[in-house]
Amino acid sequence: MFAVYAVEPSPQDPLAALRVGERPEPVVPEGWVKVAVRAASLNMHDLWTLRGVGIKESAFPMILGCDGAGVLSDGTEVVLHSIIGDPSWGGEETLDPGRTLLTEKYQGTFADHVVVPARNVLPKPAELSFVEAACMGTAWLTAYRMLFVKSGLRPGQTMLVQGASGGVSTALVRLGRAGGFRVWVTGRTEAKRELASRLGAHAVFEPGARLPERVDAVFETVGKATWSHSLKSLKPGGIVVVSGATSGEPSALEIQRLFFLQLRVVGSTMGTLEELRDLLAFCALNGIRPQVGAELPFERAAEGFAAMWGGDTAGKIVFTR
């Protein structure tokens, strides 16, 4: 079958490990289902896989892609949940020490077919296209959990999103506006700030800009480049919700500011199957659609990877069959 895959780990030049070509058809274990992929979205996680992060060298070649939407053998249209957990785990899904994502241990969605546990498919809402639904499983689910599960914000309060154009950031803007929050966003370029405004941000700022007032919550996916600004932007007692650090880890935690102003720092990773179910329903009910910056056939996947590697994104990059 046709697939987009990583042939080996390439820490310094991840795009050098990218291949487009034929891979064996997947075997379907008992309790799993085979999905004909119609669309799959690109995530930063795929670049980490190319670099060999979070995956054993023995797992290569690895088909890339965490997210996807497609069709079961009986014609049912589905959305994929990419977290595969330990069946014996009875606690919170994202805390399962045995959990893994597609592309870490199991082959991913950038292919004609993917196999996943039967519990990992949810009905695709008719209101969402395959391209839109393919954006939901990682970036949008991460944003949903950060905002509605972890932040503790109430409608009417002010949130700051650091970074304007990535998948999680654009999802936070759309979800925040729909949830009744005042949404502020920072962006490196005029084009990125303009995009955030089009998506519903109430105000946009340059990185590091002094804000008109302090905010109730900051949503962090950038890390080192924005961390100090995030803490300085918070009201006393405010919260930073962190789900990534694309620019690296902060060089200083600024402990004094944390304890003196009683700030809270909360980590957030992905989301649960039930949260994905709720996210899909929320988007369908409220007419919310993901920002798709580029839609490319799988054969042109290298273009999408190059754009993400270069930071040239304006929402989600989606590959289609």
Results as ranks from 00 to 15, higher is better:
8 E>Y: 14
10 S>G: 04
12 Q>L: 13
14 P>M: 01
18 L>K: 09
18 L>W: 13
22 E>M: 05
22 E>L: 07
26 P>C: 03
30 E>Q: 13
34 K>P: 09
34 K>S: 12
35 V>Y: 07
37 V>Q: 02
40 A>G: 02
40 A>S: 15
40 A>L: 03
41 S>M: 04
42 L>Q: 10
50 L>A: 10
53 V>E: 10
55 I>G: 01
62 M>D: 11
70 G>A: 05
76 T>N: 09
82 S>I: 01
82 S>Q: 13
87 P>F: 11
89 W>F: 15
92 E>H: 14
96 D>R: 13
96 D>M: 14
96 D>T: 09
102 L>Q: 01
102 L>F: 00
108 G>R: 12
109 T>G: 05
111 A>G: 01
118 A>G: 06
119 R>H: 06
124 K>M: 12
126 A>K: 14
129 S>L: 02
130 F>G: 04
130 F>H: 14
132 E>Q: 15
133 A>F: 13
133 A>K: 12
136 M>E: 01
141 L>Y: 10
142 T>M: 05
149 V>L: 02
161 V>E: 12
167 G>T: 08
168 V>W: 07
170 T>H: 02
178 A>G: 08
183 V>D: 06
183 V>T: 10
184 W>A: 01
187 G>P: 03
188 R>Q: 10
196 A>Q: 00
197 S>V: 07
197 S>G: 15
198 R>K: 14
199 L>G: 00
201 A>R: 08
208 G>M: 05
208 G>L: 08
210 R>H: 06
212 P>N: 02
216 D>R: 06
220 E>C: 14
220 E>Q: 13
229 H>E: 07
230 S>A: 09
230 S>H: 05
230 S>E: 07
232 K>P: 01
235 K>I: 03
236 P>C: 07
255 I>E: 04
256 Q>T: 08
257 R>S: 12
259 F>M: 07
259 F>V: 13
264 R>T: 12
265 V>C: 15
266 V>A: 15
267 G>A: 05
271 G>N: 11
276 L>I: 05
291 Q>H: 02
292 V>D: 03
292 V>R: 10
296 L>R: 15
297 P>Q: 13
298 F>R: 14
298 F>T: 00
300 R>A: 15
305 F>G: 05
305 F>W: 12
305 F>L: 12
306 A>D: 07
316 K>E: 02
320 T>D: 04
321 R>H: 09
